Computed example of a mutant assay.
Amino acid sequence: MDEQELQQIEANVRLAIDQLGPLSDVDFGLNQASVEWVEGFIERRRSRPDFDLERIDGLIGVLGSFLGACIVANTGGSWHRPGDDGWGVLLPDGSTAFPFAKVHKQFRDGVEAGESIVSFYRIAVDFIATGKLREAREGGAGPR
């Protein structure tokens, strides 16, 4: 685990909160409302005439760090680097969520193509981390 990269992720999270919080109309922090605001921010950026996917790696880094930190804060997960796949969030069930890849996909394809960081966040927090997705795949949790 590269401590310097983790420190950069933490710095990116602080930058996102410091810079985007005052622009938002929500209690900006490591929460779903902020993820929803950031999704709108991405969509607004994508719609600008000067938008160039090839020139936003830094923004993807900042927003991916923020999205991952939101998932960590709300699942009890931790940052994890599995091989060459880049940084992800190791969830309590052993799955890994890749927030940087998801932010990149939303910038590239947009919500209209199904690339929503809010859906990604909700699935990670509400279904994968809790084990509900695994239960559904295995036929439910049994009699209630």
Rank of each mutant, 00 (worst) to 15 (best):
58 G>C: 10
84 D>W: 11
111 V>P: 01
73 A>S: 14
67 L>E: 05
43 E>D: 13
57 D>A: 11
76 G>V: 07
26 V>T: 12
42 I>K: 02
42 I>T: 11
85 D>H: 12
107 F>P: 01
31 N>H: 09
116 S>D: 04
109 D>Q: 14
79 W>Y: 09
88 G>T: 03
42 I>V: 15
81 R>K: 15
62 V>Y: 04
86 G>M: 00
103 V>W: 00
69 A>L: 09
70 C>S: 13
55 R>K: 14
101 A>E: 11
111 V>F: 10
56 I>L: 12
91 L>K: 01
39 E>V: 14
44 R>N: 12
60 I>V: 15
29 G>S: 13
43 E>M: 11
30 L>S: 10
73 A>T: 11
30 L>G: 06
100 F>H: 15
33 A>V: 03
41 F>V: 09
96 T>N: 04
25 D>Q: 12
68 G>I: 04
120 F>R: 00
50 D>H: 10
93 D>M: 10
95 S>G: 09
66 F>R: 02
83 G>S: 11
44 R>D: 13
94 G>I: 03
25 D>C: 10
60 I>W: 01
37 W>K: 06
45 R>V: 15
24 S>F: 05
84 D>E: 15
90 L>G: 05
119 S>V: 09
77 G>Q: 04
32 Q>P: 02
97 A>E: 00
84 D>L: 15
116 S>R: 00
72 V>F: 01
72 V>D: 04
99 P>K: 00
122 R>V: 12
111 V>G: 04
53 L>T: 06
39 E>W: 03
35 V>A: 05
80 H>A: 14
83 G>H: 04
103 V>I: 14
120 F>K: 02
106 Q>D: 11
87 W>S: 03
111 V>A: 07
47 S>P: 03
97 A>D: 03
89 V>T: 01
52 D>P: 08
120 F>S: 05
61 G>T: 04
45 R>Q: 14
66 F>A: 05
46 R>V: 15
80 H>S: 14
106 Q>L: 07
57 D>G: 12
117 I>P: 01
41 F>D: 08
88 G>H: 00
68 G>W: 01
26 V>A: 13
39 E>H: 12
43 E>K: 07
106 Q>E: 13
35 V>R: 00
55 R>G: 11
92 P>F: 03
26 V>I: 06
46 R>T: 14
54 E>N: 13
55 R>L: 15
38 V>F: 03
86 G>E: 01
24 S>D: 06
48 R>N: 10
53 L>E: 13
59 L>W: 09
109 D>F: 15
96 T>G: 04
119 S>Q: 12
98 F>H: 00
103 V>S: 02
35 V>K: 02
99 P>Q: 00
120 F>Q: 02
55 R>A: 15
75 T>Y: 01
83 G>C: 10
88 G>M: 00
63 L>Q: 05
34 S>I: 09
110 G>T: 02
31 N>P: 13
37 W>C: 06
96 T>H: 03
60 I>R: 02
48 R>P: 05
27 D>G: 06
31 N>R: 05
76 G>L: 05
98 F>N: 01
70 C>Y: 03
97 A>Q: 02
